[in-house]
Computed example of a mutant assay.
Amino acid sequence: MNGQERKNLSAGTHVKIVLKHHQRTGTLTEGIVKDILTKSSTHPHGIKVRLEDGQVGRVKEILK
């Protein structure tokens, strides 16, 4: 699924995100969505979320 569309995400969704300091390398961090921080319905670089462990980044992959 597409991490650029807000409608594909909800609290509890298992995702891979890229953290701000990993944007150059593209290193992904896996976790469960706690909050969706992007207010618009889409974002070209991925919807910004906060994971349950407090990390914030943009969604690159939505996992099953």
Rank of each mutant, 00 (worst) to 15 (best):
M1I: 05
M1K: 08
M1D: 02
N2T: 09
N2M: 05
N2A: 15
Q4A: 09
Q4E: 11
Q4D: 07
E5H: 08
E5K: 11
E5R: 08
K7V: 10
N8Q: 12
L9M: 04
S10Y: 08
S10F: 04
A11D: 13
A11H: 11
G12W: 07
T13L: 07
T13Y: 05
H14S: 03
V15K: 06
V15N: 07
V18C: 13
V18L: 13
L19H: 08
H21I: 05
H21R: 09
H21Q: 05
H22Y: 14
Q23K: 15
Q23T: 12
Q23S: 11
R24L: 11
R24Y: 11
T25H: 06
T25D: 14
G26V: 10
G26K: 02
T27F: 15
L28T: 10
L28G: 00
T29Y: 11
T29S: 13
E30Q: 14
G31Y: 01
G31T: 00
I32N: 05
V33H: 05
K34D: 14
K34T: 00
K34R: 15
D35Y: 09
I36M: 10
I36V: 14
L37G: 04
T38H: 10
K39V: 12
H43N: 15
P44W: 03
P44I: 01
G46T: 11
G46R: 12
I47F: 06
I47M: 09
I47Y: 01
K48P: 00
K48G: 02
R50I: 01
L51S: 01
L51R: 01
L51H: 02
E52H: 09
D53K: 12
D53P: 03
G54D: 05
G54F: 02
G57N: 06
R58M: 08
K60N: 12
E61V: 03
L63D: 01
K64N: 13
K64C: 02
